[in-house]
Amino acid sequence: MPGIGPRSAERIALWIVQARGDQPEHIARAIAATRESVRPCPRCGFFTMEEICGICSDTTRAADLLCVVEQATDILPLEKTSAFRGRYHSLGGRISPLDHVGPDDLRIKELVARVEQEKFSEVILALAADVEGEATTNYLVELLKPFPISLTRIAHGLPAGGGLESADELTLYQALSGRTKL
């Protein structure tokens, strides 16, 4: 299990064996139920127990805004900000020839199909700022350019609340080269 080292594992194992109540059984049932009922949303790739996930079916959210992320788990921090009230699309990874991942291994065809059908006004690319993230962003830009949408990408730069002196030099460099006009 991720995040659990040998010492924690030993303590958990002992607790399971020695627990007085039936908490371990509850947890076991909860894990089994989760495995059975939670699956990727067929539209956006986020987690859902229903036909379509809570974000895709929420009619109060803007239906003309789409945010593209690498992984379904990237949606969680974005949702916590409450800054984005549109739809998501998770690719399930990024184009990475060194890991033998190509466009056909990702949900890119599904993305193009959604852009064709759902009439978005803006598509925001929120991929990582490393080499593979950049390349995947470029690939998507070429693919989505023909559509009458505004294509944007998220900014990278200074962490909020941080002074210049606390930022590392690479971050500062990116913040400077990605500066915005006032």
Binding site: P97, E132, Y139
Partner: peptide, 30 residues
């Protein structure tokens, strides 16, 4: 590091049996 990663990725694409120009081009910018 970033340059080497972009270069190795691009070379891996050029070495594949059917090089796909669109993917190669995606690695041009980095």
């Amino acid at each position: 590091r970033s340059y080497e990663r972009a270069l190795r990725s691009r070379n891996a694409l050029l070495k594949s049996s059917q090089p796909r120009p669109r993917e190669i081009a995606a690695y041009d910018a980095p």
